[in-house]
Amino acid sequence: MRTPDFAATRRDLVMGATLTTAAVATPRRPGARAAAADTPATGPGAPVMKIAFTVNGAARTLDVDTRTTLLDALREHLDLTGSKKGCDHGQCGACTVLVGGRRINACLTLAVMHQGDEITTVEGLGTPDRLHAMQAAFIKHDGYQCGYCTPGQICSSVAVLEEIRAGIPSHVSAELEARPQVTPAEIRERMSGNICRCGAYSNIVDAITEVAERPA
């Protein structure tokens, strides 16, 4: 939901503050879309392109500065703020989303590179009323503390179980050609691209294990 113009949130104020210089040069009309600090407002020398993709089942069309990452397109243009920006360098996994069913770091890919793609964010996995099994398991097992990494952890977890089902081996698989099993060691290795500063790892492993053991 868009915040009404008169009820500026802390986030809007922070973004407004970072845009002071730009605002002087190019006054924004009240309520105009604020750009993220690292996705500069478009202007001379900043090419804009049209992109069409499907996000959580809905067709979306956007005009974006070519520099816009998929993460910023989701968060700043489509208001899908479930996916988080942790490090913005592919090191923490908080931005993990599914593209064509495969997990990727949304911060390390450009929106314009996803023409026609099907993107699923944590909002598309389930809703507060109809939780995805993995979301429910994270709640049950307390697989988080502050929750910031959780959307990425959950998207990654869902993909990890698909990858194991598809027979993709991992660094800790004893046999390359054998079907990989769902073990705590496999889950830990496959989830190593998702960092949790609160250290909820053991509960995350429990949550994933429970979903894996449930009949499909």
């Binding site: 997990r103 991992s170 691209g193």
Partner: peptide
């Protein structure tokens, strides 16, 4: 398999 993360390898 020894390199990067699942997300990056994808």
């Amino acid at each position: 398999l020894a390199g990067a993360s699942g997300q990056l390898r994808n």
